[in-house]
Structure formats: structure tokens, C-alpha cells
Design a protein around this nucleic acid. Structure first.
Lengths: 211, 211
DNA sequence: ATCCGACACTAAACGGGAATCACCCAAAGG
DNA sequence: CCTTTGGGTGATTCCCGTTTAGTGTCGGAT
């Protein structure tokens, strides 16, 4: 994010003025389109048109299409991570922290459906493994923050079945499943979202954790 | 599956011999490729090559690519539905039926990951709404079979929180989340699949249903 | 002042996807 | 016999992501 640092020694390469502005413009335009039309709808050419530049120009600033959209997603997930870290430091019961984190997770998914799909529902078909490296790492850290309190609970012997690790994975998966279905099948006869989230969380926590 | 029946009356349009064989050949070839390489990998041209026919020929027998792959998926989901119907008729406790159905569901997903993704993880980006009509209907009937015993449980007053409908949706979503994550992120440090399934089912059922 | 190299950018093209078009050709029916 | 018709085809269209080769322009060193 910092401007290339000047080597005072020789040939301090100064950026050309609007050179590093373009990058931001592209990201802004891409984000708008991506949010509105999803991964497939966010075409290189469409983004370029929105910026008012040829499609080739995007390759000056980004390796490929995926890098653009993943960079956008990184931003979003960074916010989620920040929320998780914040919750992790609150002086409240571990179960309450878990609940808050999972709630925040689900709200994030429902608020950023396209980003969520790109990162958490992306099959290997559409986006390759290595490209996700940075984004996946952010996701890992979110999961790590979240599994912290779970392991506290496990260490306190309050887990009814399974290890702390499997409990964490199951809780995550359950919340993922709920938001994933809500996102990909929005037209179904769903019960109210708040109730679904509540039943999922209370049901699973009540079933997994002894008080 | 049956050969077109002859109308003895008039102008019984007889298929040309290999005419209706083609359709099956195409489906067989497409299924093989689809299972091995997924939605994006199952190209019209690749399928046509495998059959030994020009890509245009596929449009003689199917409206478009999606129809081919959805027809394949229909077959698979039909089997899942049959299993559910079978379980629904067993003279065992409703909770046991629910458990068996969800287990069957998850095993089906893990055994047919590409079909599962096509039907249950398909974003509107890749496959349009109306085309899924038939397949979605099959999925609905699976869900209906599954939510039957849940409503029995609800009617017996054994539900700890929420309505029968929301309980059914939550249970489904939790199982979906687990298999979806296992399919799309196979390289993670997952706990053993059997344990994850067990913790999910026992945790949620214990949390939602009173004995 | 002039040259040079780096950079932002572009037009054109490539290869590969789905889908359509305008035709063929063989065989069935009268 | 000739006509109809349905499976089949090659060429084409339109989009996609990405590459190539070339253009103009600026900063800095000579």
C-alpha cells in the first residue's frame, strides 16, 4: 500500500502521477460491478469500460481477473477479521464470544453475498488454488480467532461430544450452510432469517456445550 | 427409457435406428466427463468429441449444455429421493429416520460432488433459474420427505426451539454446510469426516429435540 | 538540447467457450 | 420415382480472458 520507497542512492523511480490512481479506480469500478453482478458478471471488459480504459490496461496493474476480485474480497474479509479480533478480546463468556462471532460471520455473508461466494463457495473450477493464497490465509485467521474460544470451552471440559477442533469445524460448517443456502436459493420458502440463525446457533451450542 | 411406441394409426414416425441411441450415448459420455472434470470441464466440444460427433449435433438432442448436465443430475437425485422415501416408510422413531436421511444426504453429496455442487451450490451466475425447474422439483421432494418426520416431532411437542419448518431447514442447512465445505475445500485440516457428520447430527438433534 | 529507458496505454489478435446458421445427405413414405 | 424430414456438419457469431506488438510520453542522465 505504501508508495514504492525511494532509494536515495540512485534512480529513485517516481510514479507517474495518475499511475497509482488507476489501480484504485479499477478496484472501485470492479467492486461496484462485482457486488452488483457477481463473479461472472464482472467482466474484464466491463470493468475497463467503467474506468474508461482499454481492457488490456487492467493487466498493467493486476496479473489477471482473479487478482482484482480477490483483492476486493481481501478488503471485505479483513473487516470480518477485525470484528472477530475485537470480539475475541471482550471479557465475556467463551460461549457468548462464539455466538457473537458466528452471528457476525453470517451477517457478513448475507451483506456481501458475492464476496462470500467467491471465497467460501468457490469450486476449483472457477478459481485456482494458489491464487487464493492471500485470501485463504485471511479466512484461516478468521477461523483461528473463532476456534480460540471453542478450545477454551473444550479445555474446560464443557464439550459434550467430539474434540474442540471438530466442534469448531461443525459450528462453522453449520453457519456456512445456512448462509450459503440463503444466498444461492433466495426464492425458497425460508423461515425468517433471524429465526434460522437463532435456531442454528442455540440448537448447536445447546447440543454441543454443557452449561 | 422405453423405445418410442409405434402408433399403428398413421405416419408412425420411426426413429432412424441410431437416432435415439445417440441421446443415451451423449448422456453417458457427458456423465463420465462431468464426474471427472466438473461443470466447467464438461465442455460441449469435449462431450461431442467423446461421442465422435460434431458439437452441433448435441443441440439436436438437448436444448443446451445445462439441460444435459441437469438431466444427469436428475438421475442421481432421483436415487437420493428413492432412498429418502424408503427411509420414510421404515417403522422406526422419527428422530432415527431424520438421522438416516441426513446421513444418506451427506454421503450422496460426498459421493457425487460435482452433481451436488451443480444442484445445491449453483450460483445464479452459472446456471439460470428456470432451467433447474425439474431438478429443483426433485430437490423439493427430497426435502419434503425429510421434513415429514420433523413435523411429526414438532407435532409431538418435542421441539425445544423454533417451528418444525425452521428446524427442518436448519438441519438441512447444517448438513449442507458440512459437505459443501468438505467438497470445495478438500485440502483443509478437517477432522475425520465420520466424526464431523456425527458431531453435526448428534449435536443438532440433541440441541433441538427433547427426548 | 537530446537521447534513452521505463511506463501507461492501446488496437489487434488468439484460443476457447456456447450457441446459431445454412446447408447437406440418407432413408422412409407415398 | 420423387419428396419429406430428421440427424448431422462446417462455418460463423458473439463473448470471454489473455497476449503481442507497437505508440506516445515522461523523467532523468548525458
Amino acid at each position: 500500500m505504501t508508495v514504492a520507497l525511494k532509494k536515495p542512492h540512485k534512480s529513485a523511480r517516481k510514479p507517474k502521477g495518475d499511475g497509482h490512481l488507476r489501480r484504485g479506480e479499477i478496484l472501485a469500478a470492479a467492486e461496484k460491478i462485482f457486488i452488483a453482478e457477481g463473479y461472472a458478471g464482472a467482466t474484464i471488459r466491463k470493468i475497463a469500460d467503467a474506468v474508461g480504459v482499454s481492457s488490456t490496461a487492467l493487466y498493467m496493474h493486476f496479473r489477471d481477473k482473479d487478482q482484482i476480485l480477490l483483492e476486493i474480497s481481501d478488503d471485505a474479509i479483513g473487516q470480518l477479521l477485525a470484528v472477530n479480533v475485537d470480539i475475541a478480546h471482550r471479557p465475556i463468556d467463551a460461549v457468548a464470544r462464539v455466538k457473537l462471532m458466528l452471528e457476525a460471520y453470517m451477517r457478513f455473508a448475507l451483506d456481501n453475498p458475492n464476496t462470500y461466494q467467491l471465497v467460501f463457495c468457490g469450486s476449483r473450477d472457477v478459481i485456482s488454488k494458489e491464487k487464493q493464497a492471500a485470501t485463504a490465509e485471511l479466512g484461516d485467521r478468521c477461523f483461528a480467532e473463532f476456534s480460540g474460544p471453542i478450545h477454551e470451552i473444550a479445555a474446560a471440559g464443557r464439550l459434550r461430544t467430539g474434540s474442540g477442533e471438530s466442534a469448531a469445524q461443525v459450528l462453522w460448517a453449520a453457519c456456512h450452510g445456512l448462509v450459503a443456502l440463503l444466498i444461492t436459493m433466495p426464492d425458497r420458502n425460508w423461515a425468517p432469517r433471524e429465526e434460522l440463525m437463532k435456531v442454528t446457533l442455540e440448537g448447536l451450542l445447546h447440543g454441543l456445550v454443557t452449561d
